[in-house]
Design a protein around this nucleic acid. Structure first.
Length: 421
RNA sequence: GUGGGUGUAGUUCAGCGGUUAGAGCGCCAGGUUGUGGCCCUGGAAAUCAUGGGUUCAAAUCCCAUCACUCACCCCA
């Protein structure tokens, strides 16, 4: 038994897997660059208050899932449970609202913490890719963001996804809708589950999202937010649909999507995929027109999404999409004897200077073991330097796939490798 | 938070009351005193998760704890 192990719900990204992360990250970078997004990095922890105000203190995330603690100065600190609030805080703190708007930013593999019971596709620390746009109210912005998310997922080899969209209105029309919904639910209140009864006053919209069959039964015939949107919100939603059409994105309107974070207004969306175990959400987001103001800034609209890196990897695994990593080395140098090892070290050094990934044995193993090692790593070319080669000033090169060998003059080896590459 | 399942070499698992706990894969070495993959031989590696209980006897039965895992809730 090891002294200790990784905390529950965390995962190591081991050397053999990191290339997969890097691939996902580099496609995100390129896609964002083409759309004028620049990277933002915000702290892993923030003042707890930011999330209470930003994410909302009626949400499950805030109520029961945050990693909150007092630091040595007695401040309440929280490990970020999502990416948007921190980005909005940074945006305001740096007065970016005084600069060119809209301000578009993205984050890459940002760690996110939620205290939950881990299971398939759910961790206590996971990583998100995402974007935030501040100061753009038009639906074209929403569609651009969704298009970007789809492009990224396609770049990761995941094309067969479904997009569900909804509009949950603005404070004006949502308040009216809440009243309508409560009016509808009031006579059925005692037939709802305890959680829903609790939500009735605090956050009635979330009752729609309850998975309890009995609650779902009571909800049939309930008024839909979509039918109660004010003129502005209805117009925005119609525009969004037209932009999505124009960008070649197919979607389904799902009036049941409400999202778990309070800052959303108007557009909300989820990108889901079908798995053996059911549906898996790989990306979620929407518009948050009230957030910036809520945090003490000007009344600026916003839009963003978060995408789970671990879930992308999961889907890739399920579809057998994990690409092979390139061999670690282009060249492996096998040596016998102390003099030959020195010569080998020089060769490795020169190869690396010429841009050729190379290494030699560092464990002082037998020639046979060195070959075995090179074979296991899939190195395409092995150089042998032992007594004979040393005496003749040559290097023996073995093509590991064909099994053919040839001698090359010592000085010409690196140049030859560079040409072959 | 609620409810299932599982903890035995690095790993996947077998053993399910009775001597000294096994196998495949992996690892190391030898067969080949200068050559990987295939083959053969040998070797290292396990306080049978932890603590308690039942028993003449526990990896095996019971209880607790911890860990892992799956589902629900929620979410990426």
């Amino acid at each position: 038994m090891l002294l200790t192990q990784a905390p529950k719900g965390t995962q190591d990204v081991l050397p053999a897997q990191s290339y997969r992360w890097q691939k996902i990250e580099s496609s995100m970078r390129e896609i964002c660059r083409l759309a004028g997004f620049r990277e933002v990095r915000t702290p892993v922890f923030e003042h707890t208050e930011l999330f209470l105000r930003g994410v909302g203190d009626t949400t499950d995330v805030v109520q029961k899932e945050m990693y909150t603690f007092l630091d040595k100065g007695g401040r309440s600190i929280t490990l970020k449970p999502e990416g948007t609030a921190g980005a909005a805080r940074a945006f305001l703190e740096a007065h970016l609202d005084a600069g060119a708007l809209p301000c578009k930013m993205y984050y890459i593999s940002c760690p996110v913490f939620r205290y939950e019971k881990p299971q398939s596709g759910r961790l206590r620390e996971h990583h998100q890719l995402g974007i935030e746009v501040f100061g753009a109210k038009d639906a074209s912005c929403d569609a651009e963001g969704i298009r970007l998310a789809m492009d990224q997922l396609e770049a990761c080899g995941i094309g067969d996804l479904s997009l569900n969209i909804n509009s949950i209105g603005c404070p004006a029309c949502r308040g009216a809708y809440h009243e309508k919904l409560k009016q509808f639910l009031r006579p059925r209140l005692d037939r709802l589950c305890p959680t829903c009864r609790d939500r009735f006053e605090r956050n009635p919209l979330r009752i729609l999202d309850c998975k309890e069959p009995s609650c779902q039964a009571e909800l049939s015939g309930a008024p839909e937010m979509l039918n109660c949107l004010c003129g502005d919100c209805a117009d925005h939603f119609e525009k969004l649909k037209r932009y999505l059409d124009a960008m070649g994105i197919s979607y389904k309107v799902d009036a049941r999507i409400v999202r778990g974070l309070d800052y959303y207004t108007k557009t909300v969306f989820e990108i889901i995929t079908q798995t053996e175990g059911g549906q898996l959400t790989v990306c979620g987001g929407g518009r948050y027109d009230g957030l910036v103001e809520q945090l003490g800034g000007p009344a600026l609209p916003g839009f963003g999404f978060g995408m789970g890196v671990e879930r992308i990897l999961m889907v890739q695994d399920m579809r057998g999409l994990s690409a092979q990593e390139k061999p670690l080395y282009d060249l492996f140098v096998c040596t016998m004897g102390d003099e030959a090892r020195l010569e080998g070290a020089r060769l490795v050094r020169q190869a690396r200077q010429a841009g050729i990934a190379a290494d030699m044995d560092h464990a002082a193993r037998s020639l046979k073991a060195q070959f075995k090692y090179a074979g296991k790593l899939g190195v395409p070319l092995v150089a042998v330097i032992a007594g004979d080669e040393l005496a003749q000033g040559v290097v023996r090169l073995r093509d590991m796939t064909r099994g053919e060998e040839q001698l090359a003059p010592r000085e010409a080896v690196v140049e030859k490798l560079r040409m072959d590459k």
